[in-house]
Design a protein around this nucleic acid. Structure first.
Lengths: 241, 241
DNA sequence: TTAATTCTGTGTAAAAAATACACAGATAAA
DNA sequence: TTTATCTGTGTATTTTTTACACAGAATTAA
């Protein structure tokens, strides 16, 4: 599977090495006048809503791809790092702040953008919808959560690919440590936690085995209270601090 | 462990959100005149020599950091992707070609480079030293393999950090699939394979258990011949195709 | 030539981890 | 009040991982 990937990459990126000439090292040096590539940051923001993992997309009133759904993203300025830029665009476009962004990958295909050459550094972030209400900001005409398997057809640029890659990384990270706390409300039932896991990892778990595993991680504890309005009277849990 | 990392990042990247103003979305748009950031590609090339995992560093006769050991790297031009650039710099500086590069991360700290703002997209690649002899090319004054735990003090830029991150990713990838074929000669003993694993993953394995695991991966097969010059007369194996 | 050393190859038992599985009590809905 | 659906819980089975020892082969030293 992985080999496939490597070979695919290879078939794209290999080009005739024989054309390389000696003495072209000068070209590799950084000079003040290097060509005007722009770099942007894009953020795949994941939230857990209605029992499903979703990603936030926007439509905007300015820019070349007005009619496409896009990840929140924008140009990295001279005085900010990519991470700072990612947080900035998130704030500008969705009103969301105080999140942790995790770098996914950088995309540099030649024709990503219609205006000029643009490379993008992609991030993902997780939020509890409860504590991070989404605002539609100025110049954002639409903003909406999409389940990962129902991304709109008119998703712009390579943002579908970015979302998939971000999701892959999220899966990989979830398997190693506990990050659900970023996605669930303060108090949650074990069933809600299990549904979250199942929806991120796209697999089903046995209820008893899942509980066993979670408890031996020693990461949550019972509040003693039960959740009303749901059959069975499930206990509410919270993150261990 | 991972949480630590996230919090560290957070403490660096958070800045006063209150200063953000509304209506600044225009800033996020790509315009032809965006500021002149340069992007480079750097490659952490790993090889397995003298029973240890090593990385290739160079010193160059041009550039601001002449006296520092650096990863092969250089500026991404308008007509090439980051991957193409990574392959190009590897060829220009070391004479090595036909490798698969894997993207690690992008580094955008503000003061990475003394000349101007430079972001770098880092890659790693694996080679069999046997089939990829290293050449010192024009403008490269020194070129040398360094064991990962003996990187020179005068390693330039943030290249030490890049090497560590590349190594982490390599470890993670090795645990999932078999990539040793890129690092070992065509015929190898099981002990050589085990030493390779141990040196990449930085842990020791039991000989019998290691063999059991490798065989049930169904990835190598015996050639029937034995390796001369080593006690015990070990069998030579090769990759299954 | 011989002896000593160091490497190879091999199997089994014990421990740990993952999986499969069923029923009684709680709550909401009918 | 009856029905339907959800919760919480323990054990046996299977699979995976780990620990461990000795005889034969090739090199090296005497």
């Amino acid at each position: 599977m992985h080999f496939f990937f490597m070979f695919e990459v290879a078939s794209i990126i290999f080009f005739p090495m024989e054309e390389f000439t000696e003495g072209s090292l000068e070209q590799l040096q950084v000079k003040p006048d290097s060509y005007g590539l722009s770099i942007t940051a894009d953020v795949a923001l994941f939230g857990f809503l209605d029992g499903a993992l979703k990603v936030l997309l926007t439509k905007r009133s300015v820019g070349k791809l007005k009619d496409c759904w896009l990840l929140p993203g924008g140009v990295m300025e001279a005085d900010e790092t990519a991470e700072q830029c990612a947080l900035k665009v998130l704030w500008y476009l969705t009103g969301i702040k105080d999140v942790n962004v995790e770098q996914v990958q950088t995309y540099t295909a030649l024709n990503r953008h219609p205006v000029k050459r643009v490379g993008t550094i992609a991030f993902y972030a997780l939020i509890k919808p409860e504590s991070h209400p989404v605002e539609r900001k100025l110049n954002v005409t639409e903003i909406k959560w999409f389940p990962l398997n129902e991304l709109p057809k008119d998703t712009g640029f390579d943002h579908k690919e970015i979302i998939q890659d971000a999701h892959k990384l999220l899966k990989r990270n979830l398997k190693n440590q506990l990050i659900f706390g970023e996605l669930l409300p303060k108090y949650f039932t074990l069933n809600e936690l299990q549904t979250l896991y199942e929806s991120i990892l796209e697999e089903q778990f046995d209820r008893r085995n899942f509980r066993k595993k979670i408890f031996q991680m020693d990461a949550i504890k019972s509040t003693g209270r039960i959740k009303k309005g749901v059959k069975g009277g499930p206990l509410l849990y919270k993150k261990m601090e």
